[in-house]
Each structure stands twice: as C-alpha cells, then as structure tokens.
Design a protein around this nucleic acid. Structure first.
Lengths: 191, 191
DNA sequence: GAACGTAACCCTAACAGTTAGGTTTTCGCA
DNA sequence: TGCGAAAACCTAACTGTTAGGGTTACGTTC
C-alpha cells in the first residue's frame, strides 16, 4: 500500500495526453462536429470507454487545461503580497490570462470554440465554476472584510471581464475598462 | 396570402402548451433525468419529432417562458420614462423578475433545476443570450453615451445580479446590494 | 364548394454521446 | 511467482436528436 512508483501514473498520463492531442488535431483538421468520439478513440488507439474514463465529455477534450485557469485566479488572490490590494492583483492576472488565451497558435482553437454552440455552452458553464471558486477564495481571505454577496458579485464580474475581453477587438483595453468599473463597484462595498 | 384565420395557430399553440405542461408534470413527478423525450411525447400524445418541432431541446421544455425574461429586461431599458436614469429602471425590473422567479409554486421547479447539471448549464447559456440582448438594448439607447464595452459589462453584471439573487438566502437584499455595486461601476464609465 | 398548396403532424430508422456490465491486461509489491 | 488493484477493453445498450418521407387538416382561391 505504498505510493505507486511511477510507471503506472506516467502511462496513464501519457494515454490521457495522447487522447487529448489526437482529439484536438482531428477537431482542427476536420471540424469539431465532423469528428466523433469513436473517431477520436480509434485514432488514439484506445477504446471509447477509455476516452470517457479520462474525460467527462466530448467538450472536455477541448478544455483539457482549464484547471490551470481556476488555480491561477485563486492563487492570484490568496498568494498576493501581504499588503497588495485585491483588485490590482486580479486585474494583473486577468490581463495575463487574456494574453495567454489570445497568444500565438491559440487562434484556430478559439475559432473552433466560437463556431460550436456546444463548446460555447460548455465554456460558459466552466465560467460558472470558476466564478464560484474565485468567490470562495475571496470569502476566505481575512484581509477582505466583505459580505458573501460582494465576494460572489466581484468574482462574477471578474470572470465577465475575462470573457468579454477574449471576444473584444482590443482585449487589453477592454480588460482595463471593465476593471475601472470593478474597482468602483468593489469600493462601493467597503464596510 | 392574408393572415391565417386562427384555428391553425390556436391548435399549434395548444399542442405546444400541452407538451410543455405534460413535460413539466412528468419531470416533477418522476425527476428530470428519469423522464425521456419518448415518455413526454407518449404522454402528450404526439410524435417525438413533434416535440422537437416545438422545442429545440429537452431542457427547453423546462424554460418554456424565457422569451418573456429577455423582453422584460430590454423593455425596461427602452421604454422607461424619458428622464429616468438607467440603473434604477434596471434595478426595479430585476427585483420584479427575482420575485417572480421565487413566487409561490416555483420552488419545486427551482429545486429541479438546481438538481440537474444539464438544466443549470442550459440556464447559464440562456443568461449569456439575455446579456447580449440587454447589451444591445443599452448600446441602442441614445440617452446613454457609453462605450460598447461599458454596455456589455453592465449587461452582464445585471444578469449576474439576477442569477445570484435567485440562489441567495435573502434575494431582495442581494439585488439591492449588487445594484449598489453596479451603480458605482456605471458611474465610473461616465464620459 | 372543390381543388390546391402548405403547415403541422406522424412514423421509422438512424446517428452520436454516454454508460453499464463484465472481462482481460498491466503494474506494483510481496 | 502469485496476488490485488488500477487501467484498459469489448459489447451492448440507452437517450437526445435529426433525416427522410409520408399523411392530415387547414386556409385560400377559383
């Protein structure tokens, strides 16, 4: 009952990665709707059930790395320097995330997501989870004596800023503009 | 090519309503997941394809009346008295919508929605559409010389207020609190 | 009122995502 | 080598959804 010594975990991770990579390649080559789960499984040389043991749904294959997103946001709050105010820390992190989302090579993926209602819907529901995680991080910070409602609203506003910026013509300016609004909103909740 | 004289439209509307009513009854009786489309069709005495000719998806059966929501919001903006400021008008309408959503008899439906990931996800994607419609209404109002970004952000914040209030312990107070934040955010966008 | 175009509806069959059930393979450790 | 467990497999189904093509009832037009 000691810790597994590695090969098994590495193989599992490798399988997962192979499936995700194959799926993304097929999706970009032929279009998301034109590729079935059975195609992904065959091209990855695994069984269909194996795909679903690694990914909860077809959409999840596309958003393989979304845990990062959540962690980066909550860490930006929890691990910021002791006396740094909340909003600038969030602002900076959202800027970074937007840049990352629109970086070189991400454009085709972005287009694919925008082109599929199923993927857009899935992304939206991820946003909800991210907002809840961020709200929890805000509520847990002893430096922020705010109401639960204020935390939840600020968390959603922050996610909104990210979502709107990713679709805007000038993403960075959009983040800045919305964060001016969030700053005012946050200050209005001061005790 | 004159207007149809009524019977056809009435029959169509009646069929639609019968399907929606039957579906909601079955969902509440047995649970959303335990009722299939084929069950709904059989109990409504129509073919499966007829169900889908009236409703775009299984989830849409539950949110039969969501067009109202969007219209009420956009009208609250477009048809408010000539000199009434935007935010109070929105605030009032959101309060009314929240009350409506939590009125007598809505509790079991609410519970059903909260209990089903598919329904929550669908509701979230409806929110996105509502936010876009509201953003368009804001951008179209000549009394509001604001940037597109400000309109979009305000629209999403407003929808956030509604969504958070519907789940909060004290919904009306939650709306009030978030609208204090939205007021500050909106004023920060003044030219 | 008979004829006609079409909207609403029906049926069957299929497709695609997803899951259950139960088996085989691979690994980690004794 | 043997054993327990995790990972992967296969088959077969279930469920939402759609395509294809036919039937009925309505509204219009002559």
């Amino acid at each position: 009952m000691t810790e597994p010594s590695g090969r098994r975990e590495r193989k599992k991770a490798a399988t997962r990665q192979r499936i995700a990579d194959t799926a993304l390649r097929l999706f970009l080559e032929r279009g998301y709707d034109a590729v079935g789960i059975r195609d992904v499984a065959a091209a990855s040389d695994v069984a269909v059930t194996t795909v679903f043991s690694h990914f909860a749904s077809k959409e999840a294959l596309v958003f393989e790395r979304d845990q990062d997103f959540e962690q980066r946001l909550t860490r930006a709050v929890a691990e910021r320097p002791p006396h740094e105010p909340l909003i600038p820390a969030l602002h900076r992190e959202v800027q970074a995330l937007v840049r990352h989302c629109l970086a070189e090579g991400s454009a085709p993926v972005r287009r694919m997501i925008e082109g599929s209602p199923a993927l857009r819907e899935y992304e939206e529901s991820m946003s909800l989870r991210h907002a809840q995680a961020l709200a929890a991080a805000l509520a847990a910070d002893p430096r922020l004596p705010r109401s639960v409602t204020a935390c939840r609203a600020t968390a959603r506003f922050t996610i909104d800023a990210y979502a709107l910026a990713c679709q805007a013509e000038d993403p960075e300016a959009t983040v800045d503009e919305i964060f001016r609004m969030i700053t005012a909103a946050w200050e209005a909740t001061a005790p």
